[in-house]
Design a protein around this nucleic acid. Structure first.
Lengths: 188, 188
DNA sequence: GTCTATACCCGGATAGAC
DNA sequence: GTCTATCCGGGTATAGAC
């Protein structure tokens, strides 16, 4: 693997595990096996490398979500597949985690991939809900964009509750609860 | 105000703004106006002081939530009041934020107040939902604990989406979306 | 109780040799 | 491209004087 890729991949992992403030250049060098000079040759510094890592994580998250959302089945089934996807719940969301870090939120280069990912995800799910409404699969009363925001929030908040409890259970409850409420909306 | 209280209060603020890793003893001393020696006289170190600050924040969060949840009105109205409470959305939740920090999650002293707060909140809301079901106000199909977890997760996840977007809008959408789904569950 | 001095390692980066 | 040396400040604390 190319040196840049090893740096980016190690940075992705560390950002996920320890956040932006908690991730040091030295730790990145150790995990990637890339030396100091080499790292600063390929990237101008920590923010630059973190931005590259976040862009890649955002791409990957999008691809993984799209795999479920574009799958077979009704809108409800595809949303349920997304929510029930197997996850390492206690690790949390590598993109959502960044939203807690003030240094990330303050830097447009770092915040952009985070913002874009959630904008896309909310829009994608809102589209599915609208589709389901058009097909008579959901009641038409709910606003698709609001409902989509709620569903995405349940996942992100589910991670918070799971980490707080040091157990995946609250995440699973939240997802079941959300799908239960959504089911009540089905037109049939 | 007593020296301890100034230290605790400043630590509460800094933990909220910058998280545990992002909060240094030096910053606490500067914000509180308390000197180095004084700080280490009253607390054994950063974890000790952070634990005291988190316990206090947990108490306060609980009191604020209880004010809405124990208010007048039906179960649905009280839950809606809690969800719609005026918030400085972009600041996020001072307790939920801690769940992202690996050093907090790894230290039982620090994680305990976080875990207890969310356990209490989920239980309190689950009780309200059960009450509403008994009164015929909600359909009996939904599991109260699951639904409560979903509602709490919507709030926590709403903060994540809002900070990602640098706007309160996604939070408000998520709350509206959740209440919209909940409304569909009303027995009438 | 509070102050100043001191310690030691880490964070984040630059410089210049190879 | 990569390595080692060097820099300066900050993080987190201890020691001992007042």
């Amino acid at each position: 693997m190319a040196t840049q890729d090893r740096l980016i991949e190690s940075t992705q992992e560390l950002l996920w595990e320890r956040g932006y403030v908690g991730t040091s250049p030295k730790a990145i060098q150790q995990r990637s096996g890339v030396g100091q000079g080499s790292m600063y040759h390929h990237f101008t510094g920590k923010p630059d490398l973190a931005a590259a890592a976040l862009r890649r994580s955002a791409e990957q998250m999008r691809a993984v979500a799209e795999a479920d959302l574009a799958g077979p089945g009704t809108a409800h089934e595809r949303i349920a597949a997304y929510l029930h996807r197997e996850r390492d719940v206690l690790r949390g969301c590598r993109i959502g985690r960044m939203a807690q870090d003030p240094d990330v939120v303050a830097d447009p280069q770092l915040r952009a991939p985070v913002e874009e990912t959630f904008d896309w995800l909310r829009g994608r799910i809102a589209g599915l809900i609208a589709e389901g409404q058009a097909a008579g699969e959901f009641a038409a009363a709910a606003d698709p964009a609001d409902t989509a925001a709620a569903l995405v929030a349940v996942v992100q908040g589910g991670y918070v509750l799971a980490r707080a409890a040091d157990s995946a259970e609250p995440f699973e409850r939240a997802v079941r609860g959300a799908l239960g409420l959504l089911a009540a909306h089905r037109a049939d």
